[in-house]
């Protein structure tokens, strides 16, 4: 529980830092002034109308991806799976690119195609993983299959883009995953499904905890393994797609967060869900701050920063996992 409280303190501090940093640096004092005073100057407008909503988006996306990753890792009993390594992100992205181009859809209506894409990609990954099986560690098969599906989906996305690249002029940031200043306008569209999925995660957390003991044990304890698995995967996909529709495919948050949470709290209990909900936003905000400071005055898309940092961490996890496996 201490970890949760610590995170709960860390979150507002990082949020303030995220508001303060940007193309125009706003001193912390002005930030706080803008938050307290009802009327303000130009800076106050920037703080309230642009940067604060960014923080809101970061919290939403971080929570979605963190919890999604945690659930996936629990139910699949595999520390290497996450919305990005399973191909869910890439599948949802392809579906969004297709519907933007061919159906002319925008914001409001992208969730459903995204969800279909995410589910299809996930199903393809699981199918492929079953077929590759037998080349070694079972947990690695899923990730390999996911990377195949991911490459396939992103190749297809880029092909569609070439048909009229001008139509995607405003979407480059989204395509590699970025928190845009106005992504918050998308939040109302996905708040309902994401909220329902989060509630579901808390409601069924007991059932999910039982899965950690392994499929056989869970069945012995009277859990309908298949139904719980389907439910959990459904919740995780809805959460991941909600995040993708808003900010694009931001990878590895869903991989890193559960790992950290597990180190601090273990795997079971509602506190782990809460911790994932808080740790996700914290890490995403850290990455976003890094994206703005690293090569200032240029700004990197936060998805790229997450890719860099997440890739290094993934490498570390693989190394420690295989080393331990050998010992």
């Amino acid at each position: 529980m201490r970890v949760v409280i610590l995170l709960a303190f860390l979150l507002p501090i990082l949020a303030l830092a995220q508001v303060s940093l940007g193309a125009v640096h706003i001193p912390m004092r002005s930030v706080i002034a803008a938050l307290i005073q009802p009327e303000g100057d130009f800076l106050a407008t920037i703080v309230r109308q642009q940067r604060l909503p960014r923080v809101g988006v970061a919290i939403f996306v971080g929570a979605c991806l963190g919890v999604s990753g945690l659930i996936l890792q629990k139910v699949m009993q595999n520390v290497l799976v996450s919305p990005s390594t399973l191909g869910i992100n890439a599948g949802a992205t392809l579906a969004v690119v297709l519907s933007v181009f061919f159906l002319g859809l925008d914001g409001r209506s992208l969730f459903l195609p995204g969800l279909l894409g995410g589910i299809a990609a996930m199903a393809l990954t699981l199918m492929a993983a079953r077929l590759i099986a037998g080349q070694g560690d079972r947990r690695l098969d899923v990730v390999l299959a996911g990377s195949m599906v991911g490459i396939l989906c992103s190749s297809a996305s880029t092909f569609v883009m070439t048909l009229d690249s001008d139509a995607f002029g405003t979407m480059i940031g989204w395509l590699v995953g970025d928190i845009g200043n106005f992504d918050h306008l998308m939040l109302p569209m996905v708040a309902l499904p994401a909220g329902a999925a989060l509630a579901g995660a808390f409601l069924f957390s007991r059932h999910l905890d039982v899965m950690v003991t392994g499929d056989d044990q869970a069945a012995l304890l009277g859990v309908d393994v298949r139904r719980v698995q389907a439910l959990a995967v459904g919740i995780a996909v809805v959460l991941a797609v909600s995040a993708v529709v808003v900010v694009g495919p931001i990878g590895f948050l869903g991989l890193v967060v559960p790992h950290l949470v597990k180190l601090a709290l273990g795997e079971t209990g509602r506190a782990t869900l809460l911790a994932a909900m808080l740790a996700g936003p914290c890490i995403l905000m850290l990455a976003d701050i890094a994206a703005r400071v690293a090569v200032a005055p240029r700004v990197l898309p936060v998805g790229i920063v997450m890719g860099l940092a997440g890739g290094v961490l993934f490498l570390g996890m693989v190394l420690s996992m295989t080393r331990r496996g050998r010992a």
Partner: peptide
């Protein structure tokens, strides 16, 4: 046991991010 493929995947991810920059 596929460990090296995972190392490769992880390195791929990092390099992919550099490509995207």
């Amino acid at each position: 046991g596929g460990g090296i493929v995972m190392v490769g995947l992880a390195v791929n991810i990092v390099l992919g991010a550099v490509t995207e920059i």
